[in-house]
Design a protein around this nucleic acid. Structure first.
Lengths: 256, 256
DNA sequence: CCTTGACCTTGTCGTAGCGTCAAGGTTTCT
DNA sequence: AGAAACCTTGACGCTACGACAAGGTCAAGG
């Protein structure tokens, strides 16, 4: 048989057969005078066996080991390990699908937030803040999504619990929107603008103790690279508010 | 922030961040005078978003499209398609695991046949033939495994049903073993050996009509590449038996 | 006899998502 | 001043082949 024939017989492509030769999975057969590979039934039997193993999901290198190791115990061991691996993959895919289902539910509940896929609790929270079209609010929604995607489930729940009043209390949400708007207005202000100090104080007052307690290694300080970057993300006067806010949060968290 | 810092913050490696730059997923930030990339919080927010999407299982190219297409509907569509894809993968893995479970059961039932993973029915059949350590029997077990791995489930069941008597009737299995042994003895015989004709007839008689009916395009003839290869797999006198057997099977199948 | 079409040959590049060197420059700490 | 821990670009490696390219072979038909 020529390569196309044996490949069709075994249900693979000629390219795959050559690949198996290359990897040493299948011995190279004799050649005809014209250079064509001349396969016998033995090769077909071996090829079919290789295909059965690949269909189970074994990697070609593993198949090579199994075939070489003149088996018995080896194959069983590989199969057990393969099953563990497949079980893990299946579980992983399943959990991804569950998260996907949750996201698609969010879509029906009012559309995905533009921040992309986030936990259901945060989606709710973002919707509460979303009406505010302020640049600062948009920025802060990004920050919330960042935190959301960073922490583990337990921390996330605590985090969302701490912020739940924002989602549940329309009045509080409105207050927050006002704070964002006030910060917006500082976009072009100078760093000695008198509105800075009181706004920082109000922002700090809006951060509950529960949230402070969550920040394990303390709130971002402006010595930290992240704190620096955060300041760099704002206009000067706004950055001054943020700096004072951060300093106050650090102070408060030390007093806890 | 430097690349290592933002990477650690988002839970990825610096290499991955550079990779996202390369693909255009994440914009390249400004550089510090020394050439280091200088990241802001905006980048961290975007990076976290990318990571959330990759964790859902989206391909990076899809993520790029979603991010570029300034979204809304696009993302939802991609997620739906992704879910279909994941469902398919999950089903595939699941079916593989079921086959694996069947194989591991075979292992407990008496070990895997050296022919590798085969359908449960064939494993039983192979065990019935296995006691015969004859080279011909070994070869034929390979042929059986080849057929087993080739046909679809329906054909396979019919095939195994046709051969079930071999597995169930010890006397018949013993008869078959004798036939194999007789063929073994022709390994060094000449092509005019008088044992050839009767042996071919006996082999033909051992093939039930039910099996013949299964061979859609007729039993292998020696004009066919596979038939040729099959003959080449045997010693001359043995090949002569096989040739006569094939011819007789063709004749019988035409008479059906 | 020549062509056409369906085969075959070797060799190389591409895929996805980075990991892992290599070879060098920067910053920081001791 | 030297070591440790960063950073830079560039290039190869991994899986299991698919998809070329550029050519040789063979059987059938005009």
């Amino acid at each position: 048989m020529r390569i196309g024939e044996i490949a069709a017989l075994a249900g693979v492509t000629p390219r795959a057969v050559r690949h198996y030769h290359h990897l040493g999975l299948l011995p190279e057969p004799e050649r005809r005078p014209n250079g064509y590979r001349a396969y016998g039934v033995r090769h077909a039997v071996e090829l079919a066996r290789i295909r059965r193993l690949t269909e189970l999901g074994l990697a070609l290198a593993e198949i090579r080991d199994v075939l070489a190791d003149d088996e018995g115990r080896e194959l069983t061991e590989v199969l057990v390990e393969l099953d563990r691996d497949l079980a893990r993959q299946e579980a992983e895919i399943h959990s991804r699908r569950e998260r996907l289902a949750g996201l698609l539910e969010q879509v029906r509940d009012g559309g995905l937030p533009p921040e992309g896929p986030v936990s259901p609790g945060l989606a709710e929270l973002l919707r509460a803040i979303a009406p505010s079209d302020s640049p600062t609010a948009r920025k802060d929604r990004g920050h919330l999504a960042l935190v959301d995607s960073l922490v583990d489930d337990e921390q996330r729940d605590a985090f969302l619990d701490a912020l739940r009043p924002l989602a549940d209390d329309p009045e509080l949400a409105a207050r927050t929107a006002e704070l964002y708007a006030a910060l917006d207005e500082l976009a072009d202000a100078r760093v000695d603008d008198p509105r800075i100090a009181p706004l920082a104080a109000e922002f700090s007052a809006a951060v509950p103790d529960t949230l402070l307690r969550l920040m394990g290694s303390g709130p971002p300080a402006d010595g930290h690279p992240f704190g620096q970057a955060l300041l760099g993300d704002f206009a000067p006067a706004q950055a001054e508010v943020v700096r004072r806010l951060m300093a106050d949060l650090v102070r408060r968290s030390r007093e806890l």
